[in-house]
Design a protein around this nucleic acid. Sequence first.
DNA 1: CGCCTATATGCCAATCGAGCTATATTGCTG
DNA 2: CAGCAATATAGCTCGATTGGCATATAGGCG
Lengths: 103, 103
Amino acid sequence: MASTFAVLADPSRREILDLLRERERPVGDLVDRLTLTQPTVSKHLKVLREAGLVEVRTDAQKRWYRVSPGPLAEIDAWLAPYRRMWEKSLDALERRLDEIEGD
Amino acid sequence: MASTFAVLADPSRREILDLLRERERPVGDLVDRLTLTQPTVSKHLKVLREAGLVEVRTDAQKRWYRVSPGPLAEIDAWLAPYRRMWEKSLDALERRLDEIEGD
DNA sequence: CGCCTATATGCCAATCGAGCTATATTGCTG
DNA sequence: CAGCAATATAGCTCGATTGGCATATAGGCG
């Protein structure tokens, strides 16, 4: 998991993931939707691939990329022990709102 | 949320958060537990503070740091739409295991 | 006030990462 | 095979970031 956070730290890569979450896409499709050159997009895809966050399928010259969510599940697991902390805060917020509503 | 991932990308900072998750701690306590110098730890704490991931309480010369989980909840929200993707995979895995068990 | 403790800040060196342009590679098609 | 389309790689630059050492600041204490 070590480097998954580092991979997700880049906004362009998160944007790519968000696009691939909708559907599988070839590289050119991503280039059209981002304000980055094709080589830059390919480089980000390589990083995402090596981190296990996307997978490729070859179809003639096209490479169809799709999300591979495994590492995201590990991030989720890292978050788990913190989750109760903000749930507690949210509960407190809810109670406050209930109080106000009660007035 | 933009930069929260970048802040979490550094392993030292994640380690600091993990230590603070157990309990509130003064800076010197963190320095003792990490292989970093005091100025470096203070610098990481500054980054965490500015990202809203920790809060400080002053007590004479000591500064007690604790986790402030708000930004983590935002990470969790970003993950949400992906969650069904790996839950689906886990479900498939479970079904496979059930099949094997059924043999 | 002088000194000690605890923490923060300034400055520097080294490294890393993102983006670009130019070029290589791979596969189809006439 | 020539040529086009789609993608990948190489090489470069610039800016950001990490970590350390030295030093400043702030708060007790004798």
